[in-house]
Write a protein that binds this DNA or RNA. Structure first.
Lengths: 166, 166
DNA sequence: CAGTATCCTGTCCGATACTG
DNA sequence: CAGTATCGGACAGGATACTG
């Protein structure tokens, strides 16, 4: 992570930067992937990821600190914790599935090894990002990114030049 | 990036791992964000990101090598390149917007500074991931991740234990 | 302007060893 | 089993200087 990208203060930042600041590394995304799947115990993550225990401790602590996972002590003696998704952690699932769809489309020449299915029927789902109100697929050039109501001058300038709207 | 996670060979991997292998770092995601917005020249990226030129060279080269950006020489003397999105690069836009929506929802207490809008009307869009065929929002527990047709034994085992479907 | 070359520092990350 | 402590190497990433 570039050290000075977040300074001076997160309130000046683009929401993508804020997101990436929390999950902008390999391990965090993969841990969240596994947590979304249902893993919660230290050794489950370790086995699934092949991660060094020391690194797993660090990344879990970071995810807990950022509020994506919650540490839950389910046994006092011996001390046992599990790491469960918070609301913001669960809301990361669409990002995971977007990454999944993107990987399946472009980096899986031999076919799809992991898919999203309807949990009832088992039928394949095809993830697509749409506008909630109209159901129209979000894609350029019909849609674009723009400064929002809470944009600071820096953000406003960044998104001002190209085809600004009233 | 964990060095041994990709070995031995990408054909054994989960599609999320393949995706993250290409964009699993800060700078790549931010460069793609800017490229999706329309930036294409070296100094545009540099100014926008505040990235060191040497690092920008490295990341651009990696993105070109992975086929997300294409280097396009638009002037011979002086030599000038621009970096434009390939099809797979353009298809990364939904991931960006998913990250945007997630950041706006959870890490923007003061309001949304960047939003997706209809390029024609300027109206705000609310990104949500749905199933293309039915339009149903993709969320657990109605939907879940499962092994796909091209799954190898390792993947199949991983997704076998919890509530497998026929 | 659009980069490349070189150097240096921080830290990511794994290996190993240890504890309740 | 569920971690913590410590060490060391590799590399991410910034600073500076240089080139066409």
């Amino acid at each position: 992570m570039p050290p000075n990208t977040l300074s001076p203060g997160p309130e000046q930042q683009c929401p993508i930067v804020r997101s990436v600041a929390r999950v902008g590394d390999w391990w965090s995304i993969l841990i969240l992937r596994d947590a979304c799947y249902g893993l919660s115990r230290f050794d489950e993550f370790q086995k699934s990821l092949g991660i060094a225990p020391t690194m797993l401790t660090r990344r879990l602590a970071a995810l807990v600190k950022d509020g994506l996972l919650q540490r839950w002590r389910y046994s006092e003696r011996p001390p046992r914790n599990e790491y469960v998704l918070t609301e913001s952690g669960r809301d990361f699932q669409p990002v995971i599935w977007s990454l999944l769809a993107w990987g399946n489309k472009h980096f899986a020449p031999e076919g799809e090894s992991v898919v999203v299915i309807d949990a009832e029927t088992g039928e394949r789902a095809d993830p697509v990002l749409v506008d909630r109100a109209t159901g129209r697929p979000l894609a350029r050039p019909a849609f674009r990114t723009a400064a929002g109501p809470a944009a600071n001058p820096r953000i406003r300038t960044r998104y001002a030049q190209k085809g600004a709207n009233p």
